[in-house]
């Protein structure tokens, strides 16, 4: 089989560029295997993050041929032998070295999310939830925090100044999972519009496209949140709920 040329970004905050390495392909290899091979034999100090190598931990996020992907889930047989494959760090975040970026933005945003506030338990001290109550949220709980959606989201990728006022897709589904929790009692509506900046999202769905867990981030998370925000503007919904004797929002 012909060799692959891997064009890997090497550098640190002071600068850097792409460097070519040639690698012999092997059956079933993924991009992360190739990076490890380069690390073990050609460049001991090539920096990259990884853990599980099975698409479960979300550590090895990178941009392969310009597309945000998990390196451990990108098989080399996606490419033609002889191809040149570029591997770059996720570009939305500050570089630490080579393929490793500083993703602390995401951990800062995580801290701001108003946590769950449960209603009181049943008389026996436990809670009851039906499978149909949680199916929808379990989808969001599949998130492995690889931050590929955060990386690809053009709101912060192309507009650095928006990082201050925008939480990004990962935290919209976090917020959706809390807001749709059958036992939650907290009103997050003003947080979602004012602090998380959902209005900045123009639902162009790149987050959904890159999600390695195939979570319908836009359709099932962000759009329902936008719709929930629109409820307060809809007199028909208001009337219907009055008629049914419900409060328009949980207290």
């Amino acid at each position: 089989m012909a060799q692959f040329t891997m064009r890997v970004f090497r550098g640190d905050p002071s600068g850097g560029g792409f460097q070519d390495y040639t690698v012999e392909p092997e059956e079933g290899m993924v991009v992360l295997d190739v990076i490890h091979r380069i690390q073990a034999t050609q460049a001991n100090d090539l920096a990259c993050r990884w853990n599980c190598k099975a698409g479960k931990c979300g550590s090895c996020s990178a941009e392969v041929n310009g597309k945000p992907r998990l390196m451990c889930m990108t098989r080399m047989d996606l490419f033609q032998p002889g191809d040149t494959i570029t591997v770059a760090p996720i570009r939305t975040f500050p570089l630490i070295r080579d393929l490793v970026t500083d993703v602390s933005y995401n951990y800062e945003k995580a801290k701001q999310v108003p946590p769950l506030r449960l209603k009181p338990p049943e008389p026996d001290g436990t809670y009851r939830m039906m499978q149909e109550d949680i199916d929808r949220i379990q989808e969001f709980h599949k998130c492995i925090e690889c931050f590929l959606c955060q990386d690809v989201c053009h709101v912060i990728r192309d507009h650095e100044d928006k990082k201050r006022v925008f939480s990004g897709p990962r935290f919209f589904i976090k917020l959706a999972s809390l807001d749709m929790h059958p036992l939650d009692t907290r009103d997050r509506s003003s947080f979602i519009t004012e602090n998380a900046g959902i209005g900045l999202c123009n639902i162009t769905k790149c987050c959904t496209e890159v999600c390695p867990e195939h979570i319908h981030i836009t359709d099932n998370g962000i759009i329902p949140l936008k719709e929930r925000a629109a409820d307060s503007l809809d007199p028909i919904v208001w009337l219907l709920r009055r008629f049914r004797g419900q409060k328009s929002r949980p207290a």
Binding site: P13, G17, P89, P94, L95, D102
Partner: peptide, 8 residues
């Protein structure tokens, strides 16, 4: 946080 700048 060591690098404030994005990959070059």
């Amino acid at each position: 946080v060591i690098g404030q700048s994005r990959p070059a």
